[in-house]
Design a binder for these strands. Structure first.
Lengths: 220, 220
DNA sequence: GACGATACGGAACCGTGTTCCGATTAGCAA
DNA sequence: TTGCTAATCGGAACACGGTTCCGTATCGTC
């Protein structure tokens, strides 16, 4: 299974998550993609690496200027490749989000019960969030610029969570009044500020939430 | 019992929560307070009312300039009375925080079990947070300016929560590995973004958390 | 009414994200 | 190799938010 908590590992050959691929696919059928210039491709890769390093060093709140400086480019270059901060963040973490999404079905197939698969998957999700300083905060930020990041996470992970939840529901292991979106948002919220207070253990809170999710006829 | 979700009801005679009373008490023993000028007192009251109205209208994120305009004063006046945004927020909600703190012992005395008292108290807390747009977010913000707000809430409410939790623990009704601070932060986190998505019901998530908190020997 | 202390207003400052546009350069053709 | 042109780059400039500063206005007292 993919390791969700490892470094962000940018720098692959294929689609590095340029903003154009985040929204609706642009003008399908207008012929093959016009292939970017070499310096543009180089810069995009450099930017993703610099951003990943900056996020590790200073959290996802690191100023755009710092990322630009780290990459040795101007801020204009960042905004040409990524229309907004959130798109850059999304691009940097795209691989890990995809890995998390892919892990859902695998866990469902390998775990000894749907509920176990669900908890393991949520564990992956939590590991991902708590190891990325400020990511959970950014996801819930009401800043309009982060709407696209929020949407990307939800688009990709809600269906996976919904499948796990549905399986657990069919097995009679969980309450039936909780939706996947709600569960994911709750878990995401619990991860906020995870690294900033040693007294607060997000994983323990998520455990509580998941325990409470279990189907228990004897509700007090 | 105090109604935590009602309007903020500023405008009382006594201490309206000026910043001086939030931090450590300044120079105790240097004689009686020198009694502010009349216009200063008038402005402080006006400011609290304007801020409360602005918070209701636009959330606690409303720009300081907007509050100043609403109160018909300059921004300098705000900063003279409240050293920072967070102090203004704290002052506006001080009454409700105090009411929430006071409700703890009352509930413990009146409810039929400590766990019930705890859940009722948490309900009050949640009602408070979800009815104040952006307050839960501000509480967890890593912005240094909100540290004082965070600290105020915690100073005031953690002891109350700890008492309720201890009582429930003595009654064998809850797990023993959760601290009051952790529980409060978890609940606070779950309230983030409560009003912005009709799909997400913070109260339901808190219910899950509290259910998971219950002592259950048969852990799956 | 005068005068010192206090409080006021809002321009100015700093740090953000984002936009804009002249300078630069890659990629191609001759 | 040399031009040419469109794509790309860099960073100054803008918008917007919190906060600070200081000349001016007002209060309260003599």
């Amino acid at each position: 299974m993919a390791d969700m908590s490892s470094g962000s590992a940018p720098g692959e050959q294929a689609d590095l998550g340029s903003a154009a691929t985040l929204g609706k696919r642009a003008d399908v059928g207008s012929g093959p993609a016009p292939r970017k210039r070499a310096d543009a491709r180089r810069n995009e890769k450099t930017l993703l690496e610099a951003a990943a390093a900056a996020f590790v060093a200073s959290g996802v709140d690191v100023p755009v200027r710092d990322i630009a400086a780290r990459a040795g480019v101007g801020v204009g270059t960042i905004y040409r490749h990524f229309p907004t901060r959130a798109d850059l963040v999304a691009a940097v973490y795209r691989h890990q989000v995809e890995a998390c999404a892919a892990a859902g079905p695998e866990l469902l197939a390998s775990a000894d019960s749907p509920y176990t698969a669900l908890t393991r998957w949520i564990d992956l999700f939590v590991d991902f969030l708590v190891t990325k300083h400020g990511l959970a905060e950014a996801l819930q930020s009401d800043d309009a610029a982060f709407q696209t990041l929020h949407a990307y996470f939800l688009d990709r992970l809600v269906p996976v969570c919904a499948d796990l939840l549905a399986a657990a529901t069919r097995a009679g292991q969980v309450r039936t009044d909780i939706e996947a979106l709600e569960l994911l948002r709750g878990v995401g919220n619990l991860c906020i500020g995870a690294g900033k207070d040693s007294q607060y253990d997000a994983r323990r809170m998520v455990t509580l939430l998941l325990t409470g999710l279990q189907h228990r006829p004897s509700t007090p």
